[in-house]
Design a protein around this nucleic acid. Structure first.
Ligand SMILES: [Zn+2]
Ligand SMILES: [Zn+2]
Ligand SMILES: [Zn+2]
Ligand SMILES: [Zn+2]
Lengths: 139, 139
DNA sequence: CCTTAAGGTGTTACGTTATTACATCCGCTC
DNA sequence: GAGCGGATGTAATAACGTAACACCTTAAGG
């Protein structure tokens, strides 16, 4: 996934967001793992390279990356995945395999708004489907 | 919301689920609050009535209630809401107002599955929309 | 050059959320 | 009553997340 980092560079250059070395490093770690990553796992991985990272270090970096549209938070897992397409419109739908932890992101699907309560203004949506991917055996 | 408790009684009688006094008490507390409730808030409310509840007490009750389809977990808030219709099919969609914390549950809408990755089997979906309800001022 | 201001990072400490493991109790069956 | 399974009590700890403050770099303005 070196594409993700290059895309991130381009995207941040375009939007003016400041992808510092630390933030880029965190994004790299998230992108390299094919599966959702936990904040404290990132923490210990950063530890190895630099001196000793503390929670705020990684949470701040993640906040930035999420804000910039480079990373999505997987709410039901307290974990994070790299967005395969930096800065798309961001109605992201995640399909998470509960067996192999693989995550597939689908973009563009504008969900559920047909039955929306009258007058409700949606600002942010969390849409996560959990199950088994095509490669995992059905139990 | 006395309906919710009566519905829960009926639903559990039908399915064989054991709605014990403790579980019923937790459901009552969740149902009474119009907004999503935190586990530790439930904990302190139970404390007042009984002797002294510990975290597993409330988490176990919540696990049961969720399993029984009486309560939904609001993933992005780490909180819980009572289901207004015990044991519906349960493709629940939640609309959460970020101003007044009111939650509206819509049933039946199955979003996003059109773009589902080939062969993926969905077992559980988390669909939560955050924004402003009709009664809250747009900033 | 010096000052100031803003944003990023380091660090400490703490708050919140959730689980593991084991003991106990209660209702049921044999 | 002995044995069993499910529900609850209890203690300890793990996992997740944030507040507050200090420090440093960079850029703008005098
Ligand atoms: Zn995305
Ligand atoms: Zn899989
Ligand atoms: Zn429901
Ligand atoms: Zn509202």
């Amino acid at each position: 996934m070196p594409d993700i980092l290059e895309d991130a560079d381009r995207h941040c250059a375009k939007t003016g967001a400041r992808l510092t070395p630390l933030r880029r490093r965190v994004l790299e770690l998230v992108a390299r793992s094919g599966a959702p990553v936990k904040a404290y796992d990132l923490l210990s991985q950063i530890d190895r390279s630099s001196t000793s990272a503390k929670p705020p270090t990684v949470y701040r970096a993640l906040d930035f990356l999420i804000e910039a549209g480079l990373v999505h938070r997987v709410e039901a897992l307290n974990a994070f995945v790299a967005c395969p397409q930096a800065g798309h419109g961001h109605a992201a739908v995640l399909y998470v395999c509960e067996s192999c932890a693989n995550v597939t992101e689908v973009q563009g699907a504008r969900p559920g708004q047909e039955n929306k309560p009258p007058g409700f203004t949606v600002k942010r949506s969390v849409i996560e489907h959990y199950g088994l991917c095509v490669d995992c055996p059905k139990p």
